[in-house]
Design a protein around this nucleic acid. Structure first.
Length: 535
RNA sequence: GCGGGCGUGAUCUAGCUGGUUAGGAUAUGAGCCUUCCAAGCUCAAUGCCCGGGUUCGAAUCCCGGCGCCCGCACCA
């Protein structure tokens, strides 16, 4: 095969974007290195992401360990749920999910089936004695959840708030075949936004409700405005819709082709153990088809609840009512001096059960202990109605989580912007990256290698570097060759010093996508560039 | 993880019916030339995926591993 993927990966390797990891030792499937240009590009993508989520949304970034103790992931459900149980037929080699099997026999040929379990997390051990079981995190989210009590304080106990993390996640994939699309160690950018449970309204929903989205629902594709999708319940709440719009905006900003983007709703049976609704931003690849690159999930109160239960930490927030409410409540007053002698050693359990019970029928109260039902005689208790001043309520916040696969987005940016044209019969490659993420912002060239032009070009290079603009100087080969080199790595602008520069202090700027040129005063160059590489 | 195909400089490839200084092209570096889109000339550096076996001798044949591709399965 020699499709866009092969061509792209060849350029990516040759030009220092991506290298297969540990290649001199034969390589290791599921791992890729980012080369010099790849690292620049990836950092730029992450920084645009930061601008969206930190500068604009006002969230904060934290950074937590990759190594995660067993009990954290036990509590979160990953130890039990992040498992594949596979049966493989000894005879015909077909594989099945274990749930699909009846009576341990292969549904195809009737042969015997060998069972295997597979937890997709990488295991490790902490400490010199290596006796503390741990995992490499499968998602960065848990690092945020376990810090919730501190973060809630940091945000001065105001909800909603958002916390983000960009970092590595690990999954020991069974068969990582699709290059950088399916990695065992990968970068993700995740945001966890905490909402009061039932509301999940979003204060900027107004701004995005007219946004038209391409949605995929049960294999059926439709175009719909976000406002309508929320009204009809296709999208469960405003917050989900808002982050779908934000995701779309982000992806288009970093160079994703709008025609190759859609949002697909997870079906019930494919939802992760922690999610009750999830929308994937899927990007289209000529090689791989539609691939999920961002997951926007409603994780409800699942994670905080799980950690509260397992650790005992308070994960609830307090919401003060505008006015304290007087609530009337019926409580049961037990006459322990009578209950004690009757129930003896079970008296304590009876007390606990009764005190926590909701009183439905005042006349007949029963309690169940070890499967036996006991009726509690009227002489053993009194029902009293009390008034209580309630100043607020406690609840576990719900979480909306947009989670981005940076490596996949990286790949799709390359694929969507890879353009092959012909120049004088020869194949010519342009990577049309948006200026905000291009690894090199400009090439600086002397038109010819004499008459003082290189010296001027060097000065310009130095000046731009000093202003923090990533540029490269190049004086080798013909000017056309130098343009071509820059086009291939996505450099949006080329600055050329020619003889006119010596006369009037102007330079030419050549545009990558159009090859058009303009002249500009040398002094204005840095600002001109800065304006264009911001987004 | 299973089955099939493949593995030669950074890239594409010749050689693969055992014996060659392993050839070419592109890209890269140095130099010459060059007044705006991969021109040309000279020179240079880089390779038989790894390990074992057969053989006097292995890029070439055999076995194992690793990687890549295709199918099955898996994929919050």
């Amino acid at each position: 095969m020699n499709d866009i993927y092969d061509k792209l990966m060849a350029v990516a390797k040759r030009r220092g974007f991506l290298y297969p990891s540990y290649e001199i030792y034969g390589g290791e499937a599921g791992f890729y290195d980012y080369g010099p240009l790849g690292s620049l590009l990836k950092n730029n993508i992450e920084n645009v992401w930061r601008k969206f989520y930190i500068s604009q949304e006002g969230f904060y970034e934290i950074s937590t360990p990759v190594i995660t103790p067993y009990e954290v992931l036990k509590a979160s459900g990953h130890v039990d749920e992040f498992i594949d149980e596979i049966g493989t037929c000894i005879k015909c080699n077909a594989s099945f999910k274990v749930e699909e099997l009846k009576d341990e026999k292969c549904p195809i040929c009737g042969g015997r089936v060998k069972k295997g379990k597979l937890n997709l997390m990488f295991e490790t051990f902490i400490g010199a004695k290596k006796n503390k079981h741990a995992f490499l995190r499968p998602e960065t989210a848990q690092g945020i959840f376990v810090n919730f009590p501190m973060l809630y304080e940091f945000f001065r106990r105001k909800i909603p708030f958002g916390v983000v993390q960009i970092g590595k996640g690990f999954r020991n994939e069974v068969s990582p075949r699709q290059g950088i699309i399916r990695l065992r160690e990968f970068s993700m950018a995740e945001a966890e936004i905490f909402f009061s449970e039932e509301k999940k309204k979003h204060h900027r929903f107004m701004e995005i409700k007219e946004e038209e989205m391409r949605l995929l629902l049960n294999e059926e594709e439709m175009k719909m405005k976000l406002g309508e999708a929320v009204e009809t319940g296709i999208i469960g709440n405003e917050a989900l819709a808002y982050y779908m719009a934000l995701t779309k905006n982000f992806l288009l900003t970093v160079g994703i082709d709008e025609n190759k983007l859609r949002f697909r709703k997870h079906k019930e049976d494919e939802l992760a153990h922690y999610a009750n609704e999830c929308w994937d931003a899927e990007l289209y690849s000529e090689r791989f088809g539609w691939i999920e690159c961002v997951g926007i999930a409603d994780r409800s109160a699942y994670d905080l609840q799980a950690h509260m239960k397992a650790s005992g930490a308070e994960m609830r927030v307090f919401e003060k009512y505008e006015e304290p409410r007087i609530e009337k409540r019926k409580v049961i007053r037990l006459k322990m001096d009578k209950i004690g002698p009757i129930f003896k050693d079970k008296a304590k359990i009876v007390k606990e059960k009764l005190e926590n019970m909701e009183i439905v029928n005042e006349e007949k109260i029963t309690v169940e202990i070890d499967g036996k039902v006991y009726e509690i005689g009227k002489e053993l208790y009194e029902i009293e109605e009390i008034e209580e001043k309630v100043t607020g309520r406690r609840y576990i916040p719900h979480v909306i989580e947009p989670s981005y696969g940076i490596d996949r987005i990286f790949y799709f940016i390359l694929e969507h912007n890879y353009k092959e044209t012909k120049k004088e019969g020869e194949k010519y490659v342009i990577l049309s990256l948006p200026a905000c993420i291009a690894p090199i912002k400009a090439g600086v060239f002397p038109l010819v290698n004499k008459d003082g032009l290189p010296e001027i070009a060097r000065e310009i290079e130095k000046g731009l570097r000093k202003k923090g603009i990533m540029v490269v100087y190049d004086d080798s080969g013909s000017i056309g060759r130098r343009y071509a080199r820059m086009d291939e790595i996505g450099t949006p602008f080329c600055i050329t010093v020619d003889y006119q520069t010596k006369e009037d202090d102007t330079i030419t700027i050549r545009f990558r996508d159009t090859t058009e040129q303009i002249r500009l005063q040398r002094q204005k160059l840095a600002d001109w560039l800065k304006e264009r590489i911001e987004f």
